[in-house]
């Protein structure tokens, strides 16, 4: 049953990719195709990275309405980026090799995320408190980031400009190869950890009872999540609710929380929504930039719905 749906999702993802590449193809076909392939690769990466990181994050925190970005991880990434600019100076930052820069940023995010989130997870805070703290962390980091930006260059803080919404139309293709390596390594680790994830989802006590080292595993998983968030944020910018939308959809579709099924399902759903949505907005609705906003809007509504319905039980 779940397998059939997984196959269906795979086909849908392929169809979305094909449509993305083929629709409206004209002019210098080789050139356009190359451009589209690059963009497709980026979108696929972003979709998979966000979806998988969200599922893992939800499992680790034991909550279905948490996502890395709700907990302020992408804001943390942008803050880390700005911190680098601040430390290296605008000129030093610009002259740095983009791959190296990205690598530094990924490492920085991993460190910051662990420093912030691990104590919260360890103390097993009330979930509502943790959510709220995460959201406020997000606001704090965004403010800190723009404060730093103003301090660095009060006139034109264009060195690192953060949009309030992800722009899936203008992806950073220069980081693609490096990001792909990070993504693939992270995905392999996640896939190998799928059974451990099933155990982790039972909660710290049960997991430890079954012989899983809770602290060590959770730290590793958080590092994994941080790397994936760094990839997606670097490529397209911050997304608040995309992960939530995709994880909720995937779980509905395969009707399982087993990670062997859920992880691929979430990844595929991410591709379908992102690539399919981009195709739809680009060709049918003629407004490619709107996808980010629409996803945020729908995802936000889903979040509110989950919050109100979930608390009724």
């Amino acid at each position: 049953m779940a397998d059939r749906r997984l196959h269906g999702l795979g086909l849908a993802a392929l169809a979305a990719a094909a449509a993305f590449l083929a629709i409206g193809l004209k002019g210098n076909i080789a050139f356009v195709l190359e451009l589209r392939l690059l963009k497709l690769a980026a979108l696929v990466q972003v979709g998979v990275a966000i979806a998988v990181s969200t599922v893992i994050f939800q499992t680790v925190t034991g909550n279905r309405i948490l996502t890395p970005s709700i907990m302020g991880l992408d804001a943390l990434y942008l803050f880390g980026q700005m911190l680098l600019v601040f430390l290296l100076g605008g000129v030093g930052y610009v002259t740095l090799d983009p791959q190296l820069k990205f690598g530094l940023e990924v490492v920085l995010l991993m460190g910051l995320a662990c420093a912030l989130l691990l104590p919260m997870l360890r103390s097993r805070l009330d979930m509502g408190l943790m959510l709220l703290a995460g959201v406020v962390f997000g606001v704090l980091f965004r403010s800190l980031q723009s404060l730093l930006a103003r301090l660095i260059d009060p006139n034109e803080f264009a060195v690192v400009q953060s949009a309030s919404f992800a722009n899936f139309n203008a992806v950073r293709t220069d980081l693609l190869v490096f990001a792909a390596i990070v993504t693939v390594v992270a995905l392999i680790i996640a896939w190998r950890a799928r059974h451990v994830l099933d155990v982790i989802s039972l909660g710290p006590d049960a997991a430890m009872g079954l012989g899983v080292s809770w602290a060590g595993t959770v730290t590793g998983l958080l590092l994994l999540v941080s790397a994936l968030v760094a990839v997606s944020t670097a490529l397209v910018g911050p997304v608040a609710f995309f992960g939530l939308l995709v994880a909720a959809l995937a779980e509905r579709i395969v009707n399982s929380r087993r990670h062997a099924v859920l992880l691929p399902a979430a990844g595929l759903t991410g591709i379908v929504v992102l690539v399919g949505g981009q195709t739809l907005f680009q060709h049918a609705l003629g407004n490619a930039t709107a996808l980010g906003v629409v996803i945020e809007f729908v995802g936000g509504l889903i979040f509110l719905l989950l919050l109100v319905l979930g608390s009724r039980k």
Binding site: D126, G128, L129, L131, L132, V135, S164, F165, A240, A290, V293, V294, E296, F297, G300, L301, F303, L304, L307, V308, S311
Partner: peptide
């Protein structure tokens, strides 16, 4: 009993309205 849900709801609710405004 879950006092943190209210501000959380409020922040995301504000975010959704903000998304409409931004759009």
């Amino acid at each position: 009993q879950q006092p943190f849900l209210v501000p959380l709801f409020g922040i995301v609710y504000g975010g959704v309205i903000g998304a409409v405004a931004t759009f």
